[in-house]
Design a protein around this nucleic acid. Sequence first.
DNA 1: CGCATTTGACCAGCGC
DNA 2: GCGCTGGTCAAATGCG
Length: 236
Amino acid sequence: MMSTTSQTNVNQSLLEEQDQIPTQMGFIPFPPNQTFPSLGCHQSLKPIGAVVPSPSSETASSAANFAETLLSTSIQRPREDLTSCFGGGGGGQLLSLNRSRVNSWAWEEVTDCLMGKKIGGDDNHHLGVSSMKMKKMKARRKVREPRFCFKTMSDVDVLDDGYKWRKYGQKVVKNTQHPRSYYRCTQDNCRVKKRVERLAEDPRMVITTYEGRHAHSPSNELEDSESPFELSNFLW
DNA sequence: CGCATTTGACCAGCGC
DNA sequence: GCGCTGGTCAAATGCG
């Protein structure tokens, strides 16, 4: 457990660190005193902000809507507040507006997601082994899912979010001392992935990035009395 | 023995 | 065109 004072300090330091978020996504700080029950967080886990694909000015309001959808399941936050986080309120410079070519796909698809479109159709299942492998190799670069990530103050790397994950890779990325871990949802028809890494500047901070939508409910029936319903809402 | 994790290799995308 | 980097695969290994 950490005090409110130290949590505030963390939030302040985060505002300085936002430009160093690896994916250069937008950052939405959570209210210091709020917990994030829909993530199934333990008390030791302190989500302090969410990161979404960096919005351009014309899509800032959509980003706010997106974030609102994600966050409204567990915390109450005025819409105007969110909008200001994305620069829509003027002076709310709480995120990096760099929209690199690398993550532009993510931003566009998040927008598609907001519009209710289905993305990432998965019909390439019946292929010969070698060609399938090649298809996979190519597809894995082209087919991208909407992403959402957040920072968490935690001793443990992997959040207990109610879903079962299988680790499929680990990589030391440039300019970081801590390896990035890659996880995939263990459900057969679920293609959701997540990446977990620690901030180089502050190893106490864990950045978890979710990619894709869950096509099922959380695997473990949460004894958590909070609200499994909210959980499924949040993690798609 | 079955499942999860580790880890080296491979590939595609990107910048120069 | 080449080298670097991130993301993924899959065989090897570990663990219950």
